[in-house]
Every structure is written in C-alpha cells, then in structure tokens.
Amino acid sequence: MSEKTVTAPLPGLVKRILVGVGQKITEKLPVLIIEAMKMENMIYGRAKGIVKEIYVKEGQNVRAGDKLITIIVAD
C-alpha cells in the first residue's frame, strides 16, 4: 500500500473541504475547493483509496505546493 499527498496547484483560499479522514474516495471525486481570484477551483485526489490526513482548514490561505491531504492508495 502506498500513500499519495495532494498539494495545492494554485494559491488561494480553502473554501470548502469535501471529504473527511477515513473516507473512501475515487479518482473523480473532488476533495476540496480552492478559491483563487474569485474563481472556485475543484481539487481532485486523483487516486482511489482512503483519506489519511487533512492538513488544511476551511478559510485557510494556501500557497501553491502546500500539502492538502494524504491518501492511502488502494492497490
């Protein structure tokens, strides 16, 4: 079993977190929304597995490259 960390592709405000720790997710499931320049951007986990850890809170500003969540990837 491997782990995958999703990082912020762009700077902005974490508008909503759509998953919880322990939740099963799929590639196509958005995990959170980052608002940048008044645009909402869906961020996807791009892996099938279980959310292990969430590093950010709603309302928090993130920089591009900041860790968002870690997923335990199902084989």
Binding site: P9, L10, A36, M37, M39, N41, M42, Y44, A64
Partner: peptide, 20 residues
Amino acid sequence: AARVSHKVGHEENDENYLIM
C-alpha cells in the same frame, strides 16, 4: 481575460490551473 485562459485550459485538461 485571465479567467478565460484558465477556464479554456481547465476544460481541456482538468489538472491544468493556469490562473496565476
């Protein structure tokens, strides 16, 4: 104009975030 670039790029490839 920047949002348009971002949107067109994102539609083509949803890993693409061109906004900045």
